[in-house]
Simulated assay, not measured.
Amino acid sequence: MSLAGLSINLATVRRQYNFAQAVDACLIQGITSIAPWRDQVEAIGLQEAVRIVEANKLRVTGLCRGGMFPAADKEGLAAAIDDNKRAIDEAAALHADCLVLVVGGLPAGSRDLPSARQMVTDGIAAILSYAREQKMPLAIEPLHPMYAADRACINTLEQALDVCDLLGEGVGVVVDVYHVWWDPRISGQIARAGAAGRILGHHVCDWLAPTRDLLLDRGMMGDGVIDLKAIRAAIEKSGYHGPQEVEIFSSENWWKRPGEEVLSTCAERYLTTCRL
């Protein structure tokens, strides 16, 4: 059965493979869409990463990640803006569908969450014209509220879409089930995002109960409590039919298994658990 709708976020096999090895392993499984992280690209070199993508006619469903805007001072914000412009260049070179933004949490020593969220809006606004020039969509990924302090102060699709509405063309959202499955407003916000053409990516994994580590114990699809097909149905109903990108951080399970086992399981679970 076709795996055309499956993408592998290379974090899923980051302990097993480097960029080139991960691509080869994906191709063996019949997977032709990937989403690398910037450190993985840097390790092999952007020019070589681009060569591999182009030679194998890969779809890059996103580059992870830009963002991390909130800063304790103007110098820190300026550094974040410069780094995000570099990330835009990298994403454009790789022909990525979007640059994924993990927006950042509270600056060091701060307790002012509204101010941090305003810094995020200001930061995205500061790079938006450059992203538009490069024809690179910016995809805000709202993260679960447990990450509000250190990783992302945008925690719901509603918050992310409010920023998109404020900033206009060129900004959208990633619907990552790990971060939004719990939200009682999710269905309405997915419909809102789809109606505005704001959905730029759909990430899948599963939420294990109990969870041993809030960052590094994501489950394989079907092993947890998320209704993956219901979320996908809402996403497709909203008009988005792009790939489902598997993104699993699993220090005590999947990162310890052979890479080929991980990828073959991703493929099997995509067909049986995720796809409508």
Results as ranks from 00 to 15, higher is better:
1 M>W: 10
4 A>W: 09
4 A>D: 15
9 N>S: 08
10 L>M: 15
12 T>G: 01
14 R>I: 10
16 Q>I: 09
19 F>V: 01
20 A>P: 01
26 C>K: 00
30 G>N: 12
30 G>D: 12
33 S>G: 09
33 S>P: 03
34 I>F: 13
36 P>Q: 03
37 W>T: 08
39 D>A: 05
42 E>T: 14
44 I>K: 06
46 L>V: 11
46 L>C: 07
48 E>L: 04
50 V>C: 10
53 V>F: 08
55 A>H: 14
61 T>E: 13
62 G>Y: 00
63 L>M: 13
68 M>H: 09
70 P>Q: 02
74 K>S: 12
75 E>G: 14
77 L>T: 10
79 A>S: 10
87 A>E: 06
101 L>E: 03
103 V>F: 04
104 G>I: 04
110 S>V: 00
113 L>Y: 07
115 S>Y: 09
118 Q>I: 15
130 Y>M: 13
130 Y>P: 12
130 Y>A: 13
131 A>M: 06
133 E>W: 09
137 P>W: 07
138 L>G: 08
147 Y>R: 09
148 A>T: 02
149 A>M: 01
152 A>P: 04
158 E>K: 14
161 L>W: 10
162 D>F: 06
162 D>L: 13
170 G>T: 04
173 V>P: 05
177 V>F: 03
181 W>D: 11
182 W>Y: 14
183 D>V: 02
188 G>N: 08
193 A>Q: 05
199 I>Q: 09
201 G>E: 01
211 T>M: 14
221 M>N: 09
235 I>W: 07
245 E>P: 01
247 E>Q: 11
251 S>N: 13
252 E>S: 13
256 K>M: 11
256 K>G: 12
256 K>R: 15
265 T>W: 11
276 L>I: 08
